[in-house]
Structure formats: structure tokens, C-alpha cells
């Protein structure tokens, strides 16, 4: 297994792990959003979806553990690469201008850390229902009620919307970037690869934000 160690220790191998784990999490996020959007179909739709998920049993745990592993690897390798990057330039420029690097690409570490904070809150909030006794008091599959109850509070809704904008920003660079890292780029597809991240980022941010926004504006109650 020396080759595995050699590969993951290398710059490109490290990037591969961040890319692949990122891709897996993007897949999860897309699935998550499609589930969430059922909320617009009324309480029955989304609640039975939640119930269906729970009934997957062992499979659900596989998914959960898988996600945990993905997130951990993504974070660990991102930090590792970042430390190496910092070490590679011990002396900063007195003046530095960027010609092309997007705002999103330059704030990956920040948006990434913010998203980690958000995920922890989100788990405490909706999965463990540890943030308010009101949510804890709801039935196991009363997801619709939980959503509405939470997002009626402007602070929570605002927090979710901001976080989803950060997610969009993170993915707008991350998704395009992972194609490059995996070697899937070519002059022919370059503009496609370059725009897929921003497009997906905007769609996801809008999709996710639509729910707290809808609750906030009274469209869902």
C-alpha cells in the first residue's frame, strides 16, 4: 500500500481527495435539496419522505458514516494542503495584485470554515433538535412543522440564508475546480467546466434559501 501513501501524500493526490470528497458531498447536497423541496408539496409530502429515509435503517447509517468520513477527509486534507501552501511562501509580497483569481477561490478556507460551523449548528438544530425545546417537543416525522416553526424566527432564517449563500460561493469555485483536479478539463470544455461551478452554486443557494425565505414571507406556514 506504499503507492496509496505516496499518492495521498503528494500534492495532486491530496487535491484528489479534497475533490472526490467534495464531489460526494455535492451529491449529498443535491439530494438533500431535492428532498427539502418537497416542503413545497405540503406537510404530507415532506414528512413521509423523512419517514421513508428513517426506515432505510442500516443503509441510513452507512450514508451517515460515509458523509462523516467524507467531511472529515475533506477538512483534514484541505487544512493539510493549506498549511503546505503557507509554508511554500514564507515571505509575502509587499504589493500583490490578482489578475484572475475569483473572490470565491480566494475565500475557500473562510467559506469552508464557516460552512463547518453551519453544519454543526444545523445538526444540533434539526437532527438533534438540541437548540430549542419547542422542536424537541415535535413528533419524529413532523419535519414540515419543524421547518416552519424554525424559519418563522427571522434570525434563524437569516442565518440559514446567509449560510446557503456561502455554500453557493464555496461550490462556485469548488465544483469547477474539482473537474480540473480530476483532470477533466480541456480547451473544448473549458468554458463549460468554468461555468458549471457558478451555475450549480447559484442554483443550490437559491434552492435552499427558497425554503426559509418562503416561510419568512408567509408562503409556507
Amino acid at each position: 500500500m506504499g503507492w496509496l501513501r505516496q499518492t495521498t501524500d503528494s500534492s495532486i493526490g491530496g487535491k484528489l481527495i479534497v475533490a472526490v470528497t467534495g464531489l460526494a458531498m455535492v451529491g449529498f447536497v443535491v439530494a438533500h435539496l431535492s428532498g427539502n423541496l418537497l416542503v413545497f408539496g405540503g406537510p404530507q409530502a415532506v414528512n413521509s419522505y423523512a419517514e421513508g429515509l428513517r426506515k432505510l435503517g442500516a443503509l441510513l447509517w452507512v450514508a451517515r458514516i460515509g458523509l462523516l468520513v467524507m467531511a472529515t477527509l475533506h477538512i483534514v486534507f484541505a487544512i493539510k494542503l493549506n498549511l503546505a501552501n503557507r509554508a511554500a511562501r514564507p515571505q509575502a509580497y509587499a504589493v500583490k495584485t490578482y489578475r484572475r483569481a475569483s473572490f470565491a477561490s480566494r475565500s475557500m478556507l473562510l467559506t469552508g470554515m464557516a460552512l463547518l460551523g453551519y453544519i454543526l449548528f444545523h445538526l444540533a438544530h434539526f437532527t438533534f433538535r438540541a437548540t430549542s425545546p419547542e422542536l424537541a417537543a415535535l413528533g419524529e416525522y413532523e419535519v414540515y412543522q419543524m421547518i416552519v416553526l424554525s424559519f418563522q424566527q427571522p434570525l434563524i432564517a437569516g442565518l440559514y440564508i446567509v449560510s446557503m449563500l456561502l455554500l453557493g460561493l464555496h461550490l462556485s469555485h469548488g465544483v469547477s475546480s474539482l473537474f480540473q483536479t480530476l483532470g477533466f478539463n480541456h480547451p473544448k470544455y473549458r468554458s463549460l467546466v468554468g461555468s458549471i461551478g457558478p451555475i450549480l452554486g447559484v442554483l443550490l443557494a437559491l434552492g435552499f434559501s427558497s425554503i426559509p425565505a418562503a416561510v419568512l414571507f408567509g408562503l409556507l406556514k
Partner: peptide, 11 residues
Amino acid sequence: EGFGNCSNQYE
């Protein structure tokens, strides 16, 4: 050699 990694910023 101590070069860093690629962040795909294309600078």
C-alpha cells in the same frame, strides 16, 4: 522542493 499545491485560481 517545497512548492505549494494548486488552488485552481489560474493566476
